[in-house]
Design a protein around this nucleic acid. Structure first.
Lengths: 346, 346
DNA sequence: ATGGCAAATGTATGCGCTTACATTTCCGCT
DNA sequence: AGCGGAAATGTAAGCGCATACATTTGCCAT
């Protein structure tokens, strides 16, 4: 038994309340919003006015149940601590929002088990599609999405060999090109400082790209010139110190897995009184806003992560509309030579 | 009429399917997951096994409808381009996730109309609570949340006078303290470069804090030493150039609205051959990871944004559990003096 | 005027789940 | 053995909406 009076004060209005206020049936209210042409203009106006007066908003769960559409999408990302993912999430959110789709964000912290829980939670919320950063979660996650017929796309790296749809740059090729750029500048002793490869096949591809380009010239990274660790400024500094302390010839150029590491290397070079780029060329990856303003300005590689988010969302949206969209071609990364790289000094 | 055979292949399983597989009723399936003590251990196990075998996940919309709980919360933020909000969102997401609540993220781009649409979309999705960055959206948004009885909290700034629950630092007081710190160092001619105050009462409070602290010493910022604009490195550089070009005495210290601006000022000072901190002290705000590694390292102010996110989520969660939690006290900002500030040169 | 047809609207059912209430089962006790 | 009551489970209603189908309305041609 309901106390009608108090309920009117308490509960959010339902479509039926709007219907009564407008003197129509609930069906017409639904149509007025979802299939506007199917209801006469003056009726529609009355309905809309009533909805506004009552402050009615459609109830997503009811609607989702009846329509079998949640109007929710999901994004699974390894971390938000790194700014590069933030732009991506923002672009996803905005592109989906234009189509009336809300975005649930989950952060896995690079933990496959957490990622699995995140995906399950998203599926329970009824997400219609999921954008996933990287594909280093184990197969279970992808099998689950496939089984539930939820379209997904792997972002932040294009890979023709992947068994998943991927959108992004070709990490292998991009780092090949970075290496070739340094080779053209005459560098023959090249070091590399990369983020951890574990659970991150993008990094693995990058390292392979460097090694391949070097091998084509009969060169290789000396073990003492290769460092792997966290993508932090601190690690960049430590790594350069280690490299300088090692036996054998010093590298004349260092490829950094991202700009943070490069900042560390640059800073440490300053400290040690090593001239950049005369004695040491440094190149980063990401084109952090600060990179243009370091001294010297950091040479790096720019990726349009907003575009990447848009492409990813559009690809998923096309699938939701029943299409079988073609995967966009690999995105192009732009090498931005600035002051931290130069010809090798004779 | 249903084609049972193809449906079994096609549709996601429902609770009733699990029930049949386990030889129980749908009610027992529900209880096995939501009120485990109310079902005998061996039955529960059978149900869980059946659910696993079928790959069943509860259907959020159905559940939300019956329970009147969506298990979704919302975050409304002005932008993700600024890294400071990313950490906040991550903390919100994680804290809510621990309680089984998913997070919908919306980016308003500092546009009140967009923010309104975002809130409506969130309410339609049935969010149970919303964390809002700042309170510069106009009253309509807050009235709406209040009318729908959706608990909310305003983050990124504590204000005792606000008519909303707020969590964060006291921006006024913090910038007062920054100013007092510079005054103690002997500075008497102090400039300020702030982000745009429009639609950002946090910035307004910061500016007021500086002016108030100065006024207590009978001082003020000269108009030509006050710049307001985007929070970019570029703007920091331009602003310092403008300040140096102005008539009258040069400031011996500059307070920057955030670290990005401070980086710009620092860079431009280098360019102009101005010694930091001997000729010019510079202080930032945010404690960007890079700040510790600039030359000289940037003095700045640290705020624990992860904690802020956690406190915000916990405050909201407490309300969802029916409590009337006390608002946590203002968070403390930590002034981190590094190399870019020093005693005024005689 | 009237029949016929399309457009507009209403009626009623079900989406998948939870839960109040009804029923059954399982104890321990006399 | 039989009874009472608690615990376990089942039954059925309904959460708010969309939509197939039924009904009414409106319009035009006759």
């Amino acid at each position: 038994m309901r106390d009608t009076t108090s309920e009117l004060l308490t509960r959010s209005p339902r479509a039926i309340d709007v219907a009564r206020a407008a003197g129509v049936s609930a069906a017409t209210v639904s149509r007025a919003f979802n299939e506007p042409d199917k209801v006469q203009p003056h009726v529609r106006q009355r309905v809309i006015a009533a909805a506004e007066a009552l402050g009615w908003l459609p109830h997503g769960a009811g609607s989702a149940l009846a329509r079998r559409r949640s109007l929710i999408a999901g994004a699974l990302i390894p971390t938000l601590a790194n700014g590069i993912f933030a732009a991506h999430v923002a672009a996803l959110q905005e592109t989906f929002a234009r189509e009336g789709i809300s975005l649930i964000v989950s952060v896995s912290n690079h933990d496959p088990a957490q990622a699995m829980r995140d995906v399950q939670a998203m599926l329970t919320r009824g997400v219609e599609a999921i954008a996933v950063v990287g594909e280093d979660f184990g197969d279970a996650i992808f099998d689950l999405m496939t089984a539930r017929k939820v379209p997904y796309v792997v972002t932040h790296g294009f890979s023709a060999e992947s068994r998943h749809p991927t959108i992004g740059i070709d990490n292998f090729q991009t780092f090949q090109e970075i290496t070739q750029y340094l080779l053209r500048l005459g560098h023959r002793t090249i070091g590399m400082i990369a983020p951890t490869q574990k659970n991150n096949s993008r990094v693995t591809a990058r390292v392979a790209g460097v090694r391949t380009a070097l091998a084509e010239m009969g060169l290789a990274i000396r073990p003492q010139h290769f460092c792997e660790g966290p993508w932090s400024i601190q690690f960049g500094r430590e790594s350069l110190r280690a490299i300088l302390a090692a036996d054998g010839p010093r590298p004349t150029a260092i490829i950094c897995g991202n700009d943070q590491i490069a900042f560390g290397v640059l800073t440490e070079a300053h400290m040690q009184g090593i001239a950049v780029p005369e004695e040491l060329s440094i190149i980063g990856f990401d084109d952090d806003p600060i990179s243009a303003h370091t001294t010297p300005p950091l040479s790096t590689v720019n990726i349009d992560r907003t575009l990447m988010g848009q492409l990813s969302a559009q690809y998923l949206l096309a699938q939701l509309q029943g299409g079988t969209p073609a995967l966009p071609p690999p995105m192009t990364a732009t090498l931005i030579p600035r002051g931290s790289t130069g010809a090798v000094h004779p």
